[in-house]
Design a protein around this nucleic acid. Structure first.
Lengths: 143, 143
DNA sequence: CTGCATGCAAAGGTTTTGCAAAAAT
DNA sequence: ATTTTTGCAAAACCTTTGCATGCAG
């Protein structure tokens, strides 16, 4: 994870962006977040760690991380962006429980391949995709 | 389409909801929209048709239509809900051009089947899904 | 030194909501 | 007569942005 921070720092340098105190603080905490987190959750984690940064910088740094491909952002629920660290992660899609909002990741090569087929059949050059399965998880069904 | 309006009217009755002037005006125009439209686009279409209704009623009626399964709403771009009439439509997913934002619909039973498999493999009872493929369409690639 | 980055607070923009008035059953 | 709906305008909401000040290179 420390190496992930360095990777980002290298990336910033390459891009001619600066290594600032605020960015370093945010990186250190953001790259250590597990699962899916929100900008607000990250800000809270920073505060808990005694790191003071403005909300604006959190959003701006998150945008930087997304641009660099270190983090991905998605909107699982209207109006709320959710972020996920992708460094060292394989691509995956999500299963979302409509009961408890639990998020489970999955990979399915067969589906990926079929997506490519669909795209080319329509003359599209596939760049990315978003697949979300919504349903009730085992726990919620029993409850 | 006229029958679609009646279907919704029947639905309202079943639900103990009222058939009001505003609702009838909105239904008549909304169910005739083709492709994907926004609440604002619907409001504009209503005005062009000389039908005066409040923006609030448009949103509220759209919510009703979504609840009844007559229309589906999705968020293709952050902060903007897009609606689509589903009456008499088969289920389908979307291919979205990142160049011109064109939206192409497609169906793929094989993918659907695999989604079911994934869900049950994780103990989920699948309720719905969202699959979007992003890429450049043939036109945009040539341009 | 020069100019990008920060923080604050205010803006942004769609969708939602409170409320009194109007309409439906 | 009662209860739902309407329409207006204000609220809500996260996220983005303008600007003056402060650091990085």
């Amino acid at each position: 994870m420390a190496t992930a921070v360095n990777d980002v720092l290298d990336y910033l340098r390459e891009q001619g962006l600066r290594s600032t105190e605020a960015r370093r603080r945010i990186l250190a905490v953001a790259l250590g977040m597990d699962d899916h987190f929100t900008a607000d959750g990250l800000l809270e984690a920073l505060r808990e760690a005694g790191q003071r940064v403005s909300r604006a910088s959190v959003y701006r740094t998150l945008a930087l991380l997304v641009d660099g491909g270190f983090v991905e952002s998605r909107e699982f629920q209207r109006g709320h962006l959710t972020y996920e660290v992708m460094v060292g992660q394989d691509h995956h899609d999500h299963l979302i429980c409509t009961g408890c909002e639990k998020i489970v990741e999955f990979e399915n090569d067969e589906i990926e391949r079929l997506q490519d087929d669909v795209a080319s059949a329509h003359g599209f050059d596939l760049q990315s995709h978003s697949l979300r399965l919504y349903g009730r998880c085992a726990d919620c069904r029993l409850a």
